[in-house]
Design a protein around this nucleic acid. Structure first.
Lengths: 188, 188
DNA sequence: GCGCTAAAGCGGTGATCTCTGCTTTAGTGC
DNA sequence: GCACTAAAGCAGAGATCACCGCTTTAGCGC
């Protein structure tokens, strides 16, 4: 991208916004590049040249969604796990959240691994610092591994959001965390 | 379906086979009804009349995949959980397995709930009998709830297959089961 | 066998998507 | 400011898809 300023940035923002709107309104399956272009007030040839395919566009949007909105770390393992998990759940539950997840995960066969790695990497990067911080503090017992966090917290959240299982809320997130690192100790 | 015999059944089988092949070859996103029709040696108008949309066809295929191939119950909680989980993993890992899962889960907004319910129902029906049998036998401790099985076993499997996380194999399934109902007791 | 009709085949049509050469606009460096 | 050129707009061609009236085939009941 040799000229990222002014107009390109505006077009990019308009297209991203239009894509989010349309996916939320009619579903990712019904969205087409010309439709996004019209909504964004941009010529469709621009979309074909810059992104090429709908999958690439949605993956691009997904990668820049929710940037800089993640909650800060406070230094307590339980609190941080809960916060990050709740944020993950919130992002997934946003209109089109799952659609963008799918778009990023599923695109054309050749790029597929790339989108997968990227998506998993972003998830991991949200939880790894939490575990690192806890390990440095050296509390007992030692914090779980990243793999355990993915299996016990992230995977159930994704599964439950995908299948629209009721009761998947903040309280449930706390249950998942408690199931992994133990109930909060109410010391006498 | 008032006339399920001969020709209709042949067309159905040919179309299902062609759909599986194409999804495995080029991915569910690239498949179109005319393409399936050509591969199956069937006129495309037949597909439009019988299934209407690609999503409906793939969902139909997904529903009849792996029928009657599920492993039988032996009556032991651990063994049955492991067997069903391994079978689930195997089905998901088949070529296009995830694609069909996605097709069933993701179609048009209005029908989406239906596909979701159906998919979740089939998963549940595989594990519920295992838990029921164990509960009747009244072993100690009591078997986990279906919700726990979904969270602790099924969700991680789906998550790991979707993200192509290495090491997701039969041994790992046993670890998941052990993590849920405890390690196998090696009595003295 | 024989008729009945469900279901498949066969065009054809309009709509939409995808892509491309050329023109126009507007950032960027000097 | 001014020239340069990256990037967007425009318009149109070709391909494909989604769909539909009509014809033909072949299960199914008698």
């Amino acid at each position: 991208m040799k000229r990222p300023g002014g107009r390109s940035a505006r077009v990019r923002a308009a297209v991203h916004g239009a894509a989010v709107e349309l996916v939320g309104e009619v579903g990712a399956d019904q969205v087409t590049l010309p439709a996004v272009a019209e909504r964004a007030g941009v010529n469709s040839s621009t979309l074909y040249r810059r992104w090429g395919t709908l999958a690439a566009l949605l993956a691009d949007v997904a990668q820049h969604r929710g940037d800089a909105s993640a909650p800060p770390l406070v230094g307590d393992l339980r609190t941080d796990l809960e916060n990050q998990a709740v944020w993950t759940l919130t992002e997934l539950s946003r209109p089109g959240g799952i659609a963008f997840f799918r778009a990023e995960v599923a695109p054309d066969v050749d790029e597929r691994r790339e989108g997968l790695r990227e998506c998993l990497r972003r998830v991991s990067e949200r939880f790894q610092p939490v575990l690192d911080t806890a390990r440095e503090r050296g509390g007992t017992p030692p914090p779980p591994s990243l793999e355990q966090v993915l299996d016990r917290i992230v995977a159930p959240l994704y599964f439950r959001v995908v299948f629209s299982i009721p009761g998947t809320d903040e309280a449930y997130v706390r249950e998942l965390v408690a199931g992994l690192i133990g109930e909060p100790s109410v010391e006498p």
